[in-house]
Design a protein around this nucleic acid. Sequence first.
DNA 1: CCGCGATAATACCAATAAAATACCAATAGC
DNA 2: GCTATTGGTATTTTATTGGTATTATCGCGG
Lengths: 259, 259
Amino acid sequence: MSAADQIFAMLKESSQSGAPLYLQLRKSIEEAVNRGLIGPGDALPSERDIASKADISRVTVRKAVQDLVKGGILVQRHGSGTFVAPRMERVEQSLSRLTSFTEDMARRGMSVRSVWLDRGLYAPSPDEMMVLGLSSTELVARVARLRVANDTPLAIERAAISASVLPDPEAIGSSLYAALGMTGNRPVRAVQRISATNLGDADARLLEVPPGVAGLHIERISYLASGKVIEFTRSVYRGDAYDFVAELRLTGPGEESRP
Amino acid sequence: MSAADQIFAMLKESSQSGAPLYLQLRKSIEEAVNRGLIGPGDALPSERDIASKADISRVTVRKAVQDLVKGGILVQRHGSGTFVAPRMERVEQSLSRLTSFTEDMARRGMSVRSVWLDRGLYAPSPDEMMVLGLSSTELVARVARLRVANDTPLAIERAAISASVLPDPEAIGSSLYAALGMTGNRPVRAVQRISATNLGDADARLLEVPPGVAGLHIERISYLASGKVIEFTRSVYRGDAYDFVAELRLTGPGEESRP
DNA sequence: CCGCGATAATACCAATAAAATACCAATAGC
DNA sequence: GCTATTGGTATTTTATTGGTATTATCGCGG
């Protein structure tokens, strides 16, 4: 059943309510978008299609669609069609600029230092093999450090890099990215996932909070220009002490060539 | 049976679907590559061959092929032919398409719906007065809803809007932003803060998890083009069920170290 | 009663995309 | 080099899409 059909089904269901036709239709479309039956970038059936299938005049359809265009949830292109507008959530991803830890701390006038927890070569875990594309005979370099601001521990950062790229973890200075860049392996893109977890005993002790307290769990995968995965980092932040700030911006209709 | 013939077979099968010819053809070629019928480095039949065998114009064939070239799946060499791109180039393509939460849910066939928890006018809290710039004699419209995916509660969303902008919260359809936009108060920018908290009793009960479990706490302030604050939303997501995904672009050499 | 707005229908205009035709330019093979 | 074959491009036609002006109808209040 196509998304378009679902709209019509919804329309018929909500029918005979006495309300103006264009309001019924507007609500049906609105819900279809809201439930994700038709996602951002997807095309609506043409005004004429909707009109004939719903057996109402095209101008009435148009009135409903126009309202939603004014409301910003639909976008129309003359000669082309009507499309679902990009959502806030969608724009978040592409345009968000997460302020970095050090930037943020510096702005607050806090001193930042790191304490090494671990630097060495290990046999890779299944996770690491998957993400970094390693075989079980290769080694992985693990780098773990505790981030401390104003003598308060704020985060634990654990990075995994293929040993072929970083054969000597001990040689890293203060910046992992500088070390990678010097061997010509500078990441140009990264994908981050943020979730929340209750801190385990070990991590809680390091961050000097009681076990079970909420923490931000962040996984980041960095890519080279070639598309190869270069680094895999898992960090845990104290939820009470750190805020991630993101600025979002809404833009015009995006280019979606592929359904 | 040659690889080329398989494409044509696939094309005929998928025919009469009403979709534009070049889309049908593009899909057929894409599938042939994905199934490995034609591997990296292999040559496609010439545009003219495809055109005559499929009995469509060469320009239409070209349109389909061009799209795949832009997508990095095919490579063309003038005077030589069209070839399937080496795999490395294609990895990035698939990875650069991040799926948002709602998109993800929709793709997995999950239904996303909302349950209203509250819609009404109230005397503003100190927080709300500060952020929205209200005086103590003005009212604030509060809109709260529970977001549910596949009968699993995922988030609680509480929005506060000045009553002068949204005098009748009951009249909101399924989308708050559409309601705001239709009155000419469409937000164009937003700032978000993400942190982690342990869920309180009330929120935990709504989200159907034990109290004290970690949750993502997101505060968002939306601005009009004029710079005026239009909306203030506080949301709590189940930490175990929601991932906030962000793509970062790392630019310029010698960037500062990141969190 | 009349006027006015909201609702809805009809008919026509304008922009765009889809597809076809004809011709140009680079490459491979001899 | 020449030539057949390949991709590259410009131009045009047609169908489909949204955009708009005009008119008819209903309901309600002056």
